[in-house]
């Protein structure tokens, strides 16, 4: 490792082609697309059930993940997301892009960035439950299968992204 400079990112069409083929493969193998917010929810319900099982039982919304003695972690999306962590690392380490950093623009402190990351993450977690999926589960997967609601979701997602841009310019630009 004499060269420590990070490699540039790929051409977006090449990365998009790769991602599209992985998405297609997911449908061919498992009969479902890609997703990630569902895995976060399953992990969270599994942890909650360890701490306070009675609370899970009292909520039909959360209890359905444990129906008939099921383990919420024994699931396609959970193992998919474990793979995402590994795949991201493999790509990053072979391109010199694994570094302990805070990703932000020059005009905001680390503390400010962490605060917005937490707030944005909270909105994302809430919204992904409401919409029954996130950028991968709805926009990518529902987009490819031409599901009507997923296309409405995709346009709303881009609209929301642009709406917040002006107010967040000090964080990024």
């Amino acid at each position: 490792m004499t060269n420590t400079k990070p490699k540039p990112y790929w051409n977006p069409y090449a990365a998009g082609l790769g991602l599209g083929l992985v998405l297609l493969l997911s449908y061919m193998i498992a009969g479902q697309g890609l997703g990630s917010s569902g895995a976060f929810a399953r992990l969270e319900y599994w942890l909650l059930n360890l701490i306070t099982p009675g609370h899970i039982e009292s909520s039909p919304y959360m209890a359905k993940y444990f129906a008939n003695g099921a383990n919420p972690l024994s699931n396609y999306l959970v193992f998919l997301v474990l793979g995402v962590l590994a795949g991201g690392f493999i790509s990053g380490i072979t391109a010199g892009r694994v570094r302990k950093t805070v990703d932000k623009g020059p005009r905001i402190s680390n503390r400010g960035r962490f605060m917005f990351a937490f707030i944005g993450g909270t909105m994302m977690g809430f919204a992904a439950r409401l919409a029954r999926g996130c950028t991968s589960g709805q926009a990518l997967s529902g987009g490819a299968t031409l599901a009507l609601g997923s296309w409405a979701f995709m346009f709303a997602f881009f609209a929301g992204g642009f709406m917040a841009a002006y107010f967040m310019r000090r964080q990024w630009q």
Partner: peptide
């Protein structure tokens, strides 16, 4: 939900899938 997700994306910087890749490449 899509609108709120878009807002959360620009405020927080990621979506759930991309945040995993950010984590595994060292973003605090």
């Amino acid at each position: 939900g899509g609108l709120l997700l878009g807002l959360g994306f620009t405020i927080g910087g990621y979506c759930p899938g991309t945040s995993c890749v950010a984590l595994s490449t060292g973003k605090i």
